[in-house]
Design a protein around this nucleic acid. Structure first.
Length: 643
DNA sequence: CTAGGGTTAG
């Protein structure tokens, strides 16, 4: 390092933001220092690596340099390759090609190929491959490794293989890349074969097998590979936690998290996001609070993904205030994921207007909406009954933002109309969709038919569903419930018989409650354990009291069986959410809110019972069902009976 | 002065 370089390094070390960098830049311009390629290069590097949100400044820095060298181009290309505009890497590469004084080297190709991979752009990737070929750089080990990853990202496994086969001296990293390529292209068996034939493996090779298995949902294989690993590091543990949580196996995720600590390792930020996601699914608020404390003590609050996971977890545990606190006070830069998490959190509580407000705030902060945040905002509209706003967003999405609606967006629209009771409009919408409706779309409409008791439309919808997915028990249950709701017991019996003939079983409803940091699960009609027996005893007492003091009359609509009135009553009474609430009331201390998580949507009778309990017992109840949160207080639900 | 493969949220 020469003196000038040392000077730059020591000054830039203290440039923590763009303003202080600009001060140094101004000084360099005035003194003529910036003409030195080393100084210009250092400035550019600092923008792309150490500062955030300064890529635009970096670009201008390059454009204002009279004769940028390869290093400057490469630095800028690298900065863009992992940004949200990887396309700028490609244009910078082209810029370099037009400059006769700087021709691309192996670094340029590696970085630009990374951008092509992130864009999943086969055309650009293949073009770069040709360019590298003509310059004799395609067999450069770093370039060929990136080529393998790029082709795999684009779904072209055969190209990736060809590059690998033609690589003269593949090292362990190249081998790892080709194993990952097989997983990326859904070829688990191929990945295993290549892995077995690897001449040498390091820890990363084993870890990518775990990552590959868990991403494919092959959790048992992952578990076996994990147990067979000679050495495990924190990436191994994190991969297992994240992988199991992703597939809804939150108990296993919790288990691995406990294991980490048992073997004396400290959970890192990745394992924490994984276990937080498990909490979100389980609705384990108390555990989430403990993790939050741990995160603060460990100094991990600067990491945006951790804050996003916390926001999401608090939201899904019903504590939207805590979610908001984390969201508003997060010290790092908010990403589009942060905003989406918060929007969903508000939407689940039915705060539609606030969710929309946040969307606009996000735009003002300079973040461009993507397809997913539009799903969130449409969800917010449908759960708050904001039909007109929802339609507006849907139209603007394509026209103003240039985002082509995906099947999920169409699903949101069907839900928007369906929840509002505009069933025919929803049906019309489906028949006019430019893409063929899938089962989710029809099932959404069937749910709305059930809520509004529209038998005729439901039968039509069910016909479509039985063509697309004949063996789904949930659809049949829903249809039978619709018949039961209007007293068509003969039709109920027909559906039931056909279900029995097809050997279908109803997937059971379950509810969970956390008491003293233990999660208790209740399943309607399941074998009775001690907690369930305790819940039944308490429930009996509660039902009597709300009959006498609250004027409760059982709602017997959503019962599957054509049975005697009294039995029907019993069947509704044992819905799992009632058991969970009863259990909580018996166990929780006076004045604490009862929080329940349910895997299905709450039925009308349970909804009524919750309202009455909240009034008669002066008790706050928060119920998270499949679709949203219900907060019961003094006889009223936050969903305004709209779910 | 920059590299390639393994875990991070909606």
């Amino acid at each position: 390092m020469n003196k000038l370089e040392q000077f730059c390094v020591s000054v830039l070390k203290n440039c923590k933001n763009l303003t202080s960098l600009q001060q140094f830049h101004a000084h360099a311009l005035k003194t003529g220092l910036s003409a030195d390629p080393i100084v210009a290069g250092k400035l550019l590097l600092h923008c792309t690596v150490h500062l955030s949100d300064t890529l635009d400044y970096a670009r201008r820095l390059l454009l204002h340099t009279s004769n940028p060298d390869v290093f400057m181009y490469n630095t800028l290309i690298r900065g863009f390759s992992d940004s949200d505009t990887p396309h700028d890497s490609l244009s910078t590469f082209t810029l370099m090609l037009n400059n006769l004084d700087a021709s691309p080297d192996s670094f340029s190709f590696a970085f630009t190929l990374k951008a092509a991979a992130n864009l999943r752009c086969f055309r650009s990737g293949a073009q770069l491959h040709c360019q590298a070929l003509t310059r004799g750089l395609d067999t450069h080990l770093f370039v060929s490794t990136t080529l393998i990853s790029m082709y795999a990202e684009c779904g072209c496994l055969s190209f990736a293989r060809k590059v690998f086969d033609e690589t003269p001296d593949p090292n362990v990293v190249t081998w790892n890349a080709i194993v990952t390529a097989f997983f990326r292209c859904d070829d688990v068996k191929g990945a295993e074969k290549v892995f077995a034939s690897m001449p040498l493996k390091n820890l990363a090779s084993y870890n990518l097998m775990l990552a590959g298995y868990t991403k494919m949902g092959e959790l048992e294989y992952a578990r076996r590979a994990f147990e067979e690993m000679p050495v495990k590091d924190e990436v191994s543990w994190s991969t297992m936690i994240v992988g199991f949580a992703r597939y809804g196996c939150f108990d296993e995720a919790f288990g691995y998290f406990r294991e980490i600590q048992r073997v004396g390792m400290r959970p890192n930020e990745v394992s924490l996001t994984g276990v937080l996601s498990a909490c979100a699914q389980a609705g384990a608020l108390e555990f989430a609070k403990i993790l939050h404390g741990f995160i603060e003590k460990a100094g991990l609050v600067w990491i945006t993904p951790v804050n996003n996971a916390l926001t999401d977890t608090y939201s899904k545990c019903g504590s939207v205030d805590m979610a908001r606190l984390v969201f508003e006070r997060m010290p790092g830069k908010k990403s589009i994921v942060s905003w989406t998490s918060m929007i969903v959190g508000l939407a689940m509580q039915g705060y539609g207007e606030e969710a929309i407000g946040l969307f606009h705030e996000m735009e003002e902060s300079g973040i461009k909406p993507d397809g997913i945040v539009f799903i969130a905002i449409l969800y917010a509209c449908s759960h708050a009954g904001l039909v007109e706003q929802g339609c507006n967003f849907f139209d603007k999405m394509a026209e103003v933002y240039g985002i082509k609606p995906a099947i999920e967006h169409y699903g949101c629209m069907v839900d928007l109309y369906g929840r509002a009771g505009q069933l025919l409009k929803a049906y019309d919408f489906i028949t006019n969709m430019p893409i063929p409706p899938n089962v989710v779309i029809w099932r959404t409409l069937l749910g709305a038919c059930s809520f509004y008791g529209n038998v005729k439309l439901a039968e039509q919808v069910q016909k479509r569903l039985s063509e697309l997915d004949p063996n789904n028990s949930g659809d049949h249950v829903l249809l039978s419930n619709i018949y039961a709701g209007v007293g068509k017991w003969k039709d109920v019996a027909i559906v039931r018989r056909s279900m029995a003939e097809m050997k279908m079983t109803k997937s059971p409803g379950w509810s969970m409650i956390e008491v003293d940091k233990v999660m208790y699960t209740f399943i309607a009609g399941a074998k009775q354990d001690d907690a369930t027996k305790e819940a039944y005893r308490k429930l009996k007492e509660i039902m009597t009291r709300i009959r006498v003091e609250g004027g409760y009359v059982p709602e017997v609509m959503n019962v599957l069986h054509d049975i005697e009135e009294e039995e029907k009553e019993d069947a509704v009474i044992t819905h799992s959410e009632k058991l969970a609430v009863a259990f909580g009331m018996g166990r929780l201390s006076e004045g604490s809110v009862v929080r329940i998580m349910k895997n299905l949507r709450v039925c009308k009778d349970c909804h009524t019972v919750m309202k009455l309990i909240s009034k008669v017992y002066r008790l706050g109840i928060v119920l998270r069902d499949r679709s949203r949160f219900h907060s019961f207080n003094d006889g009223v639900c936050s969903c305004k009976d709209y779910w």
